[in-house]
Every structure is written in C-alpha cells, then in structure tokens.
C-alpha cells in the first residue's frame, strides 16, 4: 500500500485510490449507459424494418468473427504494454503499444470494408430501421476505437521522447489500457447481440 501511494504521489483521493484511475472508471461506467441505450435501440428496431436488406441479407459472420479475434488480440497486446510499463520494461511497452495500434487499425479496416459492402448492397442509415440503428451503434463503437488509436498513438509518441511519459508512466498506460479494454468488452456484447443471435 505504501509503495502504491508513493507511486501515485499527489494524485491520491481521500478514498485511498488514484484520482485519475477513479475518473477513468467513472467515465467507463457512464459509457455503459451510452452503449446500453444504443444496444437497446438496435434490439427494438432490429425486427421493425419495412424494407430489405435485413441482417441475414448482409451479415458476413466469418469476416466479423475474424475482426473479433483481431480486437481480442489487441487486448492481449494492451495488457502486455501495461505489464511492460509497470515493470520498467520500456521496450516491451513500446512494442506492445505498437502491436495494439496495428491490431486496432486492422479492426477499423474490417469495419470500413463491412460498411462499404453493406452500402453496395443497399443498406445505409436511411434504408430502414435496422440500417439506422446498426450504423449508429457500430459507428459509435468504431469512433471509440478511432479515439483509442489516437490515445495509444499519443502514448507511443510520448514514450519515445527523452523523458518518456514521466514518472507516472505505469499509471498513464494503465488508464489508456482501461479505455482500450472497455472498447473490447463493448465489442464482445455487440458481436453476440448484433451478429450472432438471430
């Protein structure tokens, strides 16, 4: 506990935890409400479309499963980056951050390809209720992935400076990791609810 307090320095809250970590957890809790609303909107509108295409006309489950594996792999590399930062292994941290960014970019590439394919098959935001709710939900998730990539990119660039990320490197990377893992768990729910359940 004493070591932890020393590591977190003046950022300790009266609850005995790091303010910045607490803030990120509160932010992620609020994000649960955001995605909870979007997922329920999708479920309500999913079966209400008056015109095709419907989910069974456009979904490519093997392709989406592949992108799910990529995002899962990015969570693994992210946790290695946090491990590297916490155990004073900067090279491991940087390589793992880079791998996470690459995996995130591949995931976004899959999503762009999927959106483009759906568009070619006649599904867009204004086609039907399924299209509107699907694009809003997965689009917002993709935006979160994009924001996460910028966040991780700034971490990677910061870590390459002479002073690195400063004395709180482990905490900075851990907070970024919390955000990235949250993006992954939201996708775990979306993959099941949107793609797999008929």
């Amino acid at each position: 506990m004493a070591a932890s307090e020393a590591a977190h320095g003046e950022h300790h809250a009266s609850a005995g935890v790091d303010n910045r970590l607490l803030l990120m957890w509160i932010f992620l809790a609020s994000e649960c409400l955001f995605f909870g609303s979007l997922i329920s909107t999708y479920l309500i509108f999913k079966g209400e479309s008056l015109v095709r295409p419907l989910p069974e006309d456009v979904f490519d489950i093997p392709l989406t499963s592949l992108s799910t594996f990529v995002l899962l792999f990015s969570s693994f590399t992210m946790v290695l980056a946090v491990y590297g930062a916490q155990h004073a292994r900067p090279r491991m941290m940087k390589l793992a951050l880079l791998a996470t960014i690459i995996a995130g970019l591949i995931f976004l590439g899959f999503q762009v390809y999927e959106f483009k394919t759906f568009g070619e098959e006649g599904l867009n935001l204004s086609t039907n209720q399924f299209g509107a709710s699907f694009f809003v939900l997965t689009g917002f998730h993709g935006t979160h992935v994009g924001v996460g990539l910028l966040y991780l990119g700034s971490m990677l660039i910061g870590s390459m400076r002479r002073n690195g990320l400063g004395r709180d490197t482990a905490t900075h990377v851990e907070i970024a990791g919390l955000y990235w893992h949250f993006v992954d768990i939201v996708w775990i729910v979306i993959f099941t609810v949107v793609y797999l359940i008929p």
């Binding site: 509160i26 992620l28 809790a29 609020s30 994000e31 649960c32 409400l33 955001f34 995605f35 909870g36 609303s37 997922i39 329920s40 479920l43």
Partner: peptide, 9 residues
C-alpha cells in the same frame, strides 16, 4: 454504471 445501463436496456 453497468447495472444502470442494463436497467435502461
């Protein structure tokens, strides 16, 4: 947050 989100759903 999670329970509130699930309740909203």
């Amino acid at each position: 947050g999670f329970i509130l989100g699930a309740a909203i759903l």
